[in-house]
Each structure stands twice: as structure tokens, then as C-alpha cells.
Design a protein around this nucleic acid. Sequence first.
DNA 1: TTGTAGGCGTTATCAT
DNA 2: ATGATAACGCCTACAA
Lengths: 359, 359
Amino acid sequence: MKPDQTAALQPTREVRRASAQPPSTLRDVAEAAGVHAATASRALNPKTRRLVSAETARRVMKAAETLGYQPNPIARSLKTSRSRTVGLVLPDLTNPLFPPIVRGIEEVLEASGYSAWIVNTDNDPKREQAQIDSLRSRQVEGLIIATARLDHPLLRKLHEQGVMMVFVNRRVENLDVPTVTADDATGISLAVKHLADLGHTRIAHLAGPQSTSTGVARSRAFRHAIRDHALEDDPSLVVECARWNEEDGAGAMRELLGRGSDFTAVVAGNDLIALGCYDVFAERGISCPADVSVVGFNDMPFLDKLSPPLTTVGVPHHDVGAEAARMLLDCVEEPERHPRSVLLAVSLVVRGSTAPRRP
Amino acid sequence: MKPDQTAALQPTREVRRASAQPPSTLRDVAEAAGVHAATASRALNPKTRRLVSAETARRVMKAAETLGYQPNPIARSLKTSRSRTVGLVLPDLTNPLFPPIVRGIEEVLEASGYSAWIVNTDNDPKREQAQIDSLRSRQVEGLIIATARLDHPLLRKLHEQGVMMVFVNRRVENLDVPTVTADDATGISLAVKHLADLGHTRIAHLAGPQSTSTGVARSRAFRHAIRDHALEDDPSLVVECARWNEEDGAGAMRELLGRGSDFTAVVAGNDLIALGCYDVFAERGISCPADVSVVGFNDMPFLDKLSPPLTTVGVPHHDVGAEAARMLLDCVEEPERHPRSVLLAVSLVVRGSTAPRRP
DNA sequence: TTGTAGGCGTTATCAT
DNA sequence: ATGATAACGCCTACAA
């Protein structure tokens, strides 16, 4: 990429920048309060404040106030090995599913004086390793992981090392780590029931990666729902996507069409896979919902403005994030507590991509 | 929010976690190499390696390798006041415009061994202040700012204090800070020309906030383009949105309709404002593009799947981010250099939301 | 070329 | 109740 144009846009430039005065340190405060740095430290820390006389505490706090003292988190981290920081490991920030989750996480963390360090792995194990190393070297107190695969040696090792973690959306097989997920089984069951109620009997499933717990859970739920509703249980109606994105969704839809099996409805593993179907429909002149009904999963932003608006399973993204953050903070503060896992309720969001089966 | 269900999902639990062995320090490496820590430090740092004998350097580096030594960035920061980290200040991560920019930024930073600390301000000056304070206390070496307003005392003060900054998308009035923006004027001019070519003569403009340089630039460009094409220059065809989002876009469209002025096309300040128009069209039974053509700005993700697909001005998001990161690294490495600003080329992306004016 | 010593800002453990 | 001291891990004058 080359810049199109380069320009110094302002005609004038200040001669020299004023330097910021160096931030005041604990010693400055102590000095101003006529007291030793150690005492100032105690006075400023609520947990140790009771160790100093009320009078000194007051003096120190006022000095800190007037000097605008802000503790240096780096020095504090070095000394305490803590950081009031957690790492957030995402496969891909450009997936619109994640920003609302991030917001939920940040909201909870912020209320507790924590902040989140966000990294992207691009689904690349090498990058994941590097990013997590980097987070750990920065003393994050825990990790919120959205990249778990069923078989995930790295995460397994971290857990063995006692690294505090919470998984969101997906889990690692047989790993006793707190997890926040949407209720995948119920979501898929709602989707299939909705389609069955519309008269569809040959329903296809574009499954998410079976290397992820979510992909497996949704596929299983799909098979169960098909049986529960006594619909056509035809294996050729199920295609697996290697990744949770539009491209693979489109590929799976092409594969499905190529097989020649009839179907009048599709349950997609998630919304992006459903969008991939839209692409193929556009290519082939297939009309949704007239020819085929589609249901997605997640209710990511802007689906209501698609053509047609996508029927999907609504997941409380913000709550997923908030709950994960809360669980991680619990773990950090009470490491011995038995890990819980949380399943969040979902709901079917009916829009224009589903319609009665054509007679 | 209450979790829907709480469950301990795994039946078994490891008895006790193995603790991670403490990471090895510079002293460990030095000891292993039979050398003093200072020497080890010199050997490990490429800039000072020439100060030690080739032989020692080799020994130290091998020791570091076998011990898996990773320098502790916190200790390093405390000593050097640097952090190989930059802050990224966004108004709202859930705006799909930003993730691709973030990706561009991270790509460049990563290649230089830097990483980005992302914060959201929610367009709240208080939060912005707090977030930036937090970034600075963590010794970020510079800031990439996407929240600039024309009048922005905080950013002005930071600049006076010599804080390294780069602005993306928007700038502060009369502040000589490097900026990366799309070519707003050309973009708007392309949009208006496109509509004029389609036969539209009464074109409305839903302007972005005039408190932002981008809002102002696009409005100005709109007026100029209208005159250049000798179209109806009617002030009642321009409405300002207070924020760059759907809600305010919808409000502005309602205001415009309420005024009763005729128009057959709309140039929206950005894509989200255009989406707000879609909402109002749906409410009122107005058909796009049959009744009204709409053009957005930015080409954020998924616009091609809207109903109708939104014609918009395409901006190289990834490049915006990459260029900003590059400029910030330049500033950090060569603080005395005169600040540049970069204008990136845009292109019109014609989709289904624009059509010839009805006769 | 290498080692010594001091300090970045904070907190924890002594002793007073 | 407070002060002195040391240490977190690293870097860098300075001395040898």
C-alpha cells in the first residue's frame, strides 16, 4: 500500500513542545506529607491503612491528592507480580460476534479496577502461543479464551500450570475450566422446531468445525432435533465447514448443492456460515426464503438489515462477556473455589429468511 | 443478568494443579553461562552485543535459549520507561469500521515487536481521560487516536506535553499532529457525481457531527459538489446528525421527511447513518432505491448483503490502520521529524441502493 | 571485555 | 505507629 498523497496539513508548527512534568511518585507524596515512603504506601492502600494513624493517613492522602499522585502500575506489578489486568484471546476481532462480548467483559472488569488486553490469534496456533506468552510476560492475572478447540494442548498445559482461565463459547475436552457458553442445544432445537412448524421436512445442516465443542454440540443437537420431529434423517444433508466464516459456509453450500440431495431449509452453524449461503444463492439464482429457508446462530449485529433479514438464534453477547469476566475475577480472588460453568439462555429471532415450505 | 443455569460440567477434577516453574531471569542465564548478569544483558541486547566477546555472547545466548529465557517486559519498562506498546483509543469497538483498522495497526506493530493496547471511550470525555491516563501510566510509547473532535482540549494538552500521537479518520483543529484519513472530499464528490449522473437533482445530505473534522469535510465537499454539478442548493436538504450512528441517522431522516422538502437521493455522512435511513424507510413504506437513492461512506463490512446492498465510498480500512501505525512508529523512533499527514484514496462502490431518478 | 553498583517505584519485612 | 531496608528484574554509568 502506498499513501495516495502526503501533505503537511498545518502551515505553522509550534516551536518546541512543552515537556510534561514527570509524574509524582510515592516518595514525593511522602515528602510532602513529612513522612516516610513506606508509611505513605500504607496510608494510600485501603488494606493497610489501618496500620497508620488516622491523622497521618489524612495528611498523606491530601498530599497525594494535591500532587495528583497516580501509583505506577509497572512498579507495582514488578513488586507484587500482579497487574489488575486480564488477557482476552480472540480468534478474530473482525468477526462482529466479538465486539459486544468484549464490551460486556470490559464493563465488568472496569468496575473492579481491572482492564483487558485484547489479542487476535487469526486461528493460528503459532500466533496464539506467541500472544499468550506475551500476555503472561505482562503478568496478566488470568485469561479469557475464545479460541478453544476440543483438542488443545496449549490450553491444557496452561491449565496444568495453574494459569487462571475462563473459556467463552467453546471448551476444551475434559478440561475442568470454567466456561460461559450459549445454550447451543436449545438454540438448535428451537431452530429445527421453527422450520418443522413451517412444514419443512428435508432440513440440511451446515455444521461448524467439529474440532470445536460448539460445532459438535450444535451438530449433535441438530441430529437429535431431527429425530425428535421425525424429519428426514439423511446424512447427505449435513456438511461440515472447516472454519466459522462466510467463505467456508459458501463452500459447504456449494458442496450440498453439488450432492443433489433435496432440501428446503438449512440450519447454519452460525450467522457467518449462513451469510455464505446467501452468497451462493446469489450466484445460482436461488431465492431465500422462497426456495430455501435459512436459520443462523448468534444474532450478530446488522442481521436485521440483510436481504432477507436472517432468522437466527439470539445469544446474549454482552452477558456472555460479562459473565466470563465475573467468573475470571472470582477465580483470581478465590483460586481454590470449584470451577463453575454457565450456560446462557438463547431465543429464536424470527426474521425474513424462513418461510413455509412451498407446496 | 442471571445465568440461566449453573453446572459443574466435568465429573472429575484433577486433585491439585502442577504449579508453573517460575520463569527464568537474567541472573539465571548469567549464572548458567558463568558470567555476570550485566554481561548477560549486554550479550542479549543486539545493540550492546558488540561490547562483549563473541565467545561470551554465544555462551550467553545458548544459555538463554536452553533456559527459555524471556525478558520481563515489566522490569524492563520500569528501568527504561519504554514498553514496546502503543495505545489505541477508539470511540466504540462495536462499530464494524474499526476492527479492520485495528488489524492493519496490529500487523504493522507486530512486525516491529510492538503491540497495541485497545481502549473504548464510548464517546465519553470522562472515560477518554481515564482510559488515556491508564494507558500513559502503563508507559505506552504513543497513542493512535480515533476519537478526535475539532475542539479537543485533552488531545491538545497531550500534544503540548509531547505525547506521541497519530490521529486516524479525524483531526483536531489547528493541531500539528500526524493524521491518516480517507480522502473525504473526493469520496463525497464521487458520490454526488454518481447521483447526478443518475438524474437526481434534489439530493439531501445527512451530515455527520460538525464537531468532527470528518463531518465538516464531508459537508463542505457536499456543498461544493452540489454547486459543481449545478444541482439544487437548498439548505433544507441538509440535516446534521449529532453522532455517527444508526439512531441519529434515523432521526435525521425523520427530520428531513418532516420538513417536506422534496428529494430523490441522500448522501449519508457514513454507512451507519445510511442504515438509519433504511430503518425509517421500512417504517414509512418508502422504497430504496425506487423512491430514494442512498449513498453511504466507508464501505464497512457486510454492506453488500443488506437490502438493498448499500452504494458507498470505499475506504482502505486496513491501510488506514497500517499507515497510522507506521507513522506512529516513525514518530517514536525519530521524534524530531516533521509530522506528515496522509490522505488515502477512496473509490465509489456502486451497489443496489442507487438507481436512476424516476421520471 | 567484564564486573560493580545503583536505581526505576513500589511493597513487604524487619526493627524501632 | 512509623522508619529503615531490601527486593521485584532489568539496565547502564562507571570502574576495573
